[in-house]
Simulated assay, not measured.
Amino acid sequence: MRRFLRDNALSLAFGLLFLLSLAGQAFAGLADYNDRRLSHAAESIGLLDYLTSADFAVDVAENWQSEYLQFFLYVFATVWLLQRGSPESKPRGRAGLETDKEQQIGRHSTADSPKWARAGGWRTGIFSMSLGLVMLGLFLLSWLAQSVAGMSAYNAEQLTEFGDPESWSGYLASADFWNRTLQNWQSEFLAIGSMAVFSVYLRQRGSPESKPVGAPHHVTDESG
């Protein structure tokens, strides 16, 4: 058990932080939701009802989709785009898909290489893009969930104000949907762009996301 905890400490720590923050969001969201209901002379609801509501679902999904979009774009963008001096970037001259030898696939694979990396053909082709494709799939699924839950929450609010409900396609073109979407996207793009630039000039000793403390600013793709 001790070895398992040591070998998986990073994923376990962030998994626990995720659950704690999700629980905190649920209780804070419930309090805010009930305050809004009381202001409209409606009865408050319990935690279970809130957790199964469209309001909670859309708040969760809109954050998930922006995170997975960030990872999808970063995984694919760093194949071709470079940032000199950043450990988040490949060095100049390695832009692109790289050779089979550099990627250790096909006849250049080793006995410890993943099976599909050694297989060749369509299996190696799919496996070589599997990380980005999974990130893309999770982004699209969570964005779809946001649109459906957002439509439901939006229509519920419309009905309380005696407005007309929107269809799903109508909601996709609404200001509410794009306001929820773009306010998350812009923060993700700012954060990831800032990290790429700050890591050129700043250091965090012992972190693989940083260059060694004494590495020159211009050195690229060197983790420490």
Results as ranks from 00 to 15, higher is better:
Arg6Thr: 15
Asp7Cys: 12
Ala9Thr: 08
Ala9Leu: 12
Leu10Glu: 06
Leu12Ala: 15
Leu16Gly: 13
Leu16Ile: 15
Leu20Gly: 15
Ala26Leu: 11
Ala28Arg: 04
Leu30His: 10
Asp32Arg: 14
Asp35Ile: 02
Arg37Pro: 00
Ala42Phe: 13
Glu43Gly: 04
Ser44Tyr: 05
Leu48Gly: 00
Leu48Asn: 03
Asp49Val: 07
Leu51Gln: 07
Ser53Pro: 08
Ala54Asn: 07
Val58Met: 10
Asp59Val: 08
Asp59Pro: 04
Glu62Cys: 10
Leu73Cys: 14
Phe76Ala: 07
Thr78Ile: 01
Trp80Cys: 00
Trp80Arg: 08
Leu82Gly: 04
Lys90Tyr: 02
Pro91Arg: 12
Ala95Thr: 09
Ala95Lys: 06
Leu97Asn: 15
Glu98Phe: 09
Asp100Ala: 15
Asp100Tyr: 04
Gly106Thr: 06
Ala111Asn: 07
Ser113Met: 08
Trp116Asn: 02
Ala117Asn: 06
Ala119Ile: 00
Trp122Asn: 11
Trp122Met: 09
Arg123His: 09
Leu131Ser: 00
Val134Cys: 12
Met135Val: 14
Leu140Ser: 08
Leu141Tyr: 03
Gln146Met: 13
Ser147Leu: 14
Ser147Glu: 11
Val148Ala: 07
Ala149Pro: 12
Met151Val: 04
Ala153Leu: 09
Ala153Asp: 13
Tyr154Thr: 07
Ala156Thr: 13
Glu157Cys: 00
Glu157Pro: 01
Leu159Cys: 07
Gly163Asp: 09
Ser174Phe: 07
Ser174Thr: 02
Ala175Arg: 05
Asp176Pro: 05
Phe177Tyr: 07
Trp178Lys: 01
Gln183Val: 14
Trp185Gln: 14
Gln186Glu: 15
Glu188Trp: 15
Phe189Ser: 02
Met195His: 06
Ser199Asn: 05
Val200Ser: 01
Tyr201Gly: 00
Tyr201Gln: 01
Ser207Lys: 10
Ser207Gly: 04
Pro208Glu: 11
Glu209Gly: 01
Ala215Glu: 14
His218Asn: 04
His218Gln: 09
Val219Asp: 08
Gly224Pro: 09
